[in-house]
Simulated scan of single mutants.
Amino acid sequence: MEDFYETRIDGVDGEIVGLFEVFDGHGGARAAEYVKYNLFKNNQNRDAGSTASTAVLVGDCLLVANVGDSRAVICRGGKAYVVSRDHKPDQTDERQRIEDAGGFVMWAGIWRVGGVLAVLVTGS
């Protein structure tokens, strides 16, 4: 099990605020667990990684952010709506971002980041 989640709901200045986070670890659970507890700290562990999908609900305003290929969706009236954009190495801008950061992307039957991490490329 490499996945972790965190949910917090509290009142701030008379408004209900909810924080919802999902982390999918790669190369083991260590990075996902670390991110759960240290989201705003810098993770220098290079042999493991994690995607993150987060949502903050303030009153009736929903803010969503993601890193990696963990897609955030909401359900309204029984229908699912995608509210984030996956980051996958087959995308020109994502490949460039990886290379600009000193990484590399290669094709080995599937796209791999750093020659190791397999990111499945599926339709949206």
Rank of each mutant, 00 (worst) to 15 (best):
W107H: 11
V64H: 03
R76E: 14
R95I: 07
K79D: 08
E94M: 07
F4L: 09
C61T: 13
W107N: 04
M106K: 07
R97L: 12
N42L: 06
R85Y: 07
A52Q: 05
L39V: 15
G27F: 00
M1P: 10
D60P: 00
L57Q: 13
A52H: 07
C75D: 05
Q96E: 12
S53E: 03
V56G: 01
D47K: 09
M106I: 12
E2P: 02
A108D: 09
N42A: 02
V56S: 02
R85V: 13
D3G: 04
V58W: 10
G25Q: 02
A101R: 12
G77T: 07
L19G: 06
E94Q: 11
D13I: 11
Q44T: 10
V73H: 03
V64D: 02
I16R: 15
S70W: 01
D86E: 09
Y34N: 08
F40I: 02
V22I: 13
D93G: 04
G18V: 10
H87F: 11
E94K: 04
R30A: 08
N38G: 05
D47G: 09
I98P: 05
R71M: 08
G14A: 14
L39C: 12
G78H: 12
G102A: 05
V12W: 14
N42K: 08
E2I: 00
A108Y: 02
R8P: 02
G77L: 06
V12T: 12
D10M: 15
A65Q: 03
F40W: 10
S53M: 10
H26P: 01
C61R: 11
Q44N: 05
R46Q: 06
Q96D: 11
E15W: 13
V58D: 06
F4H: 11
V67Y: 02
E21P: 00
L19N: 07
H26S: 02
I98K: 08
K79V: 15
A108G: 00
Q44Y: 04
A55L: 08
K36F: 05
G14Q: 14
V22L: 09
C61K: 11
G14W: 14
G78R: 11
R95Y: 03
S50K: 03
R71V: 13
V58Y: 12
D100K: 15
A72M: 05
E21L: 13
L19M: 13
A32V: 00
S70K: 01
R76Q: 15
A80N: 10
R76A: 15
V35S: 03
I9P: 00
W107Q: 13
A48M: 10
G103Y: 06
A29S: 08
K79L: 13
W107C: 03
G103L: 06
L19Q: 07
R95V: 08
S84P: 06
Q44S: 08
V12I: 15
R97A: 15
D86W: 04
G18R: 07
F4E: 10
G11W: 13
S50R: 05
L62T: 04
